[in-house]
Simulated scan of single mutants.
Amino acid sequence: MPGGDGNPDGSGNPGAGTDPDPIIGDVDFSVRSEWNTGFTGNVGITNTGGKAINGWKLEFTAPFEVNNIWGGKILSHEGNQYTIESAEWDGFIAPGASIELGFNGTNSDNMQLTLNNVELNDVPIGTVDQTAASSGIV
């Protein structure tokens, strides 16, 4: 019998038109380097759950503009809101493993370089107990 993810073995391997698996994860943002008008930022995504992540989607608001990205693809950018999805090669994150993506961004008027309203596969990060999120309690 097919799994609930549309794959005969229920493995969750992504295919065309499939949504990312629900996840339990952690997102860390850091500034690697900074100069007068820009910076290089890194975002680490760690799978803190017991099930592999097969495709991820990261959403956040930021006071800066992302000019170039590696390790992910920008799906949308409206105002300060970004939606980024996994690249073809880094969508699978085993339990306990991490991936990293990076980008260059603008830095004007000494703005605060932070990510706000962060969601990973539609789960708010930093405002929801990740253990509760895995059991469906939000």
Rank of each mutant, 00 (worst) to 15 (best):
P95A: 10
Q112E: 13
S30C: 06
T83P: 00
N117K: 13
G17K: 09
A97G: 07
D5L: 09
W89Q: 09
S30M: 08
A16S: 12
I24W: 01
E34M: 12
G55I: 03
I84L: 06
I84K: 00
E100M: 13
N68Q: 13
P22R: 14
I69P: 01
G71R: 01
G38H: 05
A62P: 00
P22N: 09
T46F: 03
S98E: 06
T114Y: 08
G91F: 04
D109R: 15
W70D: 13
M111Y: 07
F103G: 04
G102R: 05
G41D: 04
P95G: 10
S30P: 08
I99F: 04
L75D: 06
F60D: 00
E34V: 12
S33N: 12
G96M: 01
D26W: 02
T40W: 14
Y82H: 01
E78N: 13
L101E: 05
N117Q: 10
F29T: 00
N107R: 15
K57R: 15
I99A: 04
G38I: 10
G17Q: 11
Q81E: 11
D109T: 04
A97P: 00
M111N: 05
S11E: 11
S86I: 03
K57T: 12
G12F: 02
E65D: 14
K51Y: 07
K73A: 09
E65T: 12
E78V: 15
W56M: 02
G41N: 09
G49T: 05
N13W: 13
T61Q: 13
E34S: 07
P14K: 03
F60L: 05
G102S: 15
N67R: 14
S11F: 06
G91V: 03
S11Q: 11
L115M: 11
E59T: 12
N104G: 06
P63R: 15
Q112H: 09
A97V: 01
K73H: 11
F103I: 04
F39G: 02
G12Q: 06
I23E: 01
G102D: 10
Q112C: 08
A52G: 12
G38L: 10
P20Q: 06
G72L: 04
G6L: 03
D9V: 02
I45N: 04
I24N: 09
S11N: 15
N80D: 12
T18I: 07
E88I: 11
T61A: 10
G50N: 10
L113M: 08
S76C: 07
G38K: 08
D19S: 07
G25W: 02
V43G: 07
G10Q: 04
G79Q: 09
S108W: 12
L115F: 11
E78G: 03
D21F: 07
D9Y: 02
G6H: 03
W70M: 13
N67S: 12
W89D: 12
G50I: 02
A97C: 09
R32C: 00
V43W: 02
F39D: 00
T18E: 13
N116I: 05
